[in-house]
């Protein structure tokens, strides 16, 4: 059930990317898709009644091994979020350039104004 809802969130982002005309809306759709994929990776690694994969000195090792959630997707997602920020900055800078050149965020207008 959680996976299906997460997939639905991804589809909302895809819908925004393919149907919207405004460049800012398209960037927002990209951001939503990125959220959905990050959340999906973390959902796969979750263990019921789990604990965070961080040891303390008083914790029992065997208990920790039995209960801790998957650390591998967390390590991948933590970099993926920062990279998502870099992609967002790149996309926004391209959008600003397009706005300066054509005076609009509308992609249909930009197609008409080509040249």
């Amino acid at each position: 059930m959680e996976f299906i809802l997460c997939f639905f969130l991804l589809m909302v982002g895809l819908y925004a990317v393919v149907t919207k005309r405004n460049l800012v809306k398209i960037i927002i759709g990209l951001a939503i898709m990125e959220y959905a994929i990050n959340l999906f990776l973390i959902l796969i690694g979750y263990r019921k009644d789990g604990i965070a994969p961080i040891m303390t000195s008083t914790m029992d090792r065997v208990e920790f091994l039995r209960k801790a959630v998957d650390p591998l997707p967390q390590a991948l997602v933590i970099t993926s979020i920062v990279i998502g920020f870099g992609i967002l900055a790149l996309a926004v800078s391209i959008a600003i350039r397009i706005y300066e050149r054509f005076g609009t965020f509308d992609i249909n207008e930009i197609k008409k104004l080509k040249g």
Binding site: E100, G103, K112, L113
Partner: peptide, 10 residues
Amino acid sequence: MLRKRTGRRR
């Protein structure tokens, strides 16, 4: 200026 130009073309 840009807005004028786009308006004219439209």
